[in-house]
Design a protein around this nucleic acid. Structure first.
Lengths: 219, 219
DNA sequence: GGCGGCTAATGTACGCTGTACATCAATGGC
DNA sequence: GCCATTGATGTACAGCGTACATTAGCCGCC
């Protein structure tokens, strides 16, 4: 006997191992991320987590910062617009790789250190392109907004394949053509809604405009 | 006596009055929107709502559609780019006017009828500008993503004035300048993060690029 | 006018959530 | 070897969405 349930060794619960477990839980859907679920995965009791994070909110903030720190900027070239394109693509890929994180990041754009680092890296490119401080901030905000918004489109689909939006094209085609002629006519294009090609187009137009504005300013 | 608590008259609970109450509740924060809170505001019992909406999720979807139906497109002119600018601004104003709705719309880009209507109206402008169906869908997606992303920035601030991001500029200025030189240097510009001016800049660059692409295509 | 039947409003209950608060036990300093 | 510190635990509570059973108001029918 004496198989008495042994309690967790005293130093074995650290913020890092908690966040590791939390991410594993979150990967099967952010709404599945509960203090109890994280604790269970660590074979600990829910309240044990509160010795390392004051609230769930703080745990989530730390988790999101951890994810955003994985951003790695592409190497710089001599064309700042191409650097910005690569930067935006890398950023969007990061969001797509952690689809579960998109919604909470979105609703809580915490100014964590990881976000600041991303901003710093983006500003370096924009300032190199000749933009003023104010314009660089505005341009970076625009790129960020585009990426977050776009990520929400794709995340909704990635997280719920076969969900209500699993066949947008068919749904749109079924609409009354008198009321929504263009929607019905573009139903096929909507089927690939949020595609890489569409993103490249949208980002491309933004960068075109940015390059024109920068070269105007430097003339 | 016979002051027995009278129950609600039989026909008095309709989807409309429920949504009306739900919106009033949601306006003090989306997380405050619970079935129980909506029922309480109607002096009804929580389960009464389930005679009209199968789940909370469906109630929320109907509520969001109701809000998005308030979008009114600006009148058309003979300059499609200017029409698109006005359209984007009107759309963003709608989101800003219902900041609580931004997060749920974002996480659940439901293809409700109101969204379809907005898409139809946007496509009309883009097709008039000479874009192909595929490009029109991509351009609209980009505008939508920009607006949703941007709205999330401002909504976070509007919903929580005095919150952790109440003085971004001061926070950024306090960062180590060696690690984040550009962030510190642009701290002032970050203070107006998400401003109308910044949005106008970002949208403007996108529209510039779009106009150039369209005129290229028609030559 | 009385009377069923349909259905909307109600009541009760369950499992889940975050977390306040009290308790207990392992560990580092003396 | 003892004690204070502190991290792991246990219990408990309010609030959530909602399944399921019950009640009561209204309708058409005789």
């Amino acid at each position: 006997m004496a198989v008495k349930r042994t309690r967790r060794p005293r130093g074995s619960l650290t913020p890092d191992v908690i966040l590791e477990a939390a991410e594993a839980v979150a990967e099967q859907g952010f709404e599945a991320l509960s203090m109890r679920a994280v604790a269970a995965r660590l074979e600990a009791v829910p309240m044990a987590l509160y010795n390392h994070f004051a609230t769930k909110e703080q745990l989530v903030a730390a988790l999101l910062d951890r994810v955003l720190f994985r951003f790695e900027p592409p190497p710089a070239t001599d064309d700042w617009i191409e650097d910005l394109r690569a930067f935006a693509n890398a950023h969007r890929r990061l969001l797509a790789a952690h689809a579960w994180a998109v919604a909470p990041i979105f609703t809580n754009p915490s100014p964590g250190l990881a976000s600041v680092r991303i901003g710093e890296l983006a500003l370096a490119i924009l300032v190199r392109g000749g933009l003023s401080n104010a314009d660089a901030v505005a341009a970076f905000s625009g790129m960020l907004a585009l990426n977050y918004g776009w990520a929400s489109f794709t995340a909704a689909r990635d997280l719920d394949p076969g969900g209500p939006s699993h066949d947008v094209a068919a749904m749109l085609r079924a609409l009354p053509a008198e009321a929504f002629p263009l929607t019905v006519a573009t139903a096929d294009a909507w089927g690939t809604y949020g595609s890489d090609r569409d993103y490249a187009f949208a980002l491309g137009r933004f960068l075109d405009g940015l390059r024109a504005a920068a070269s105007d300013a430097t003339i």
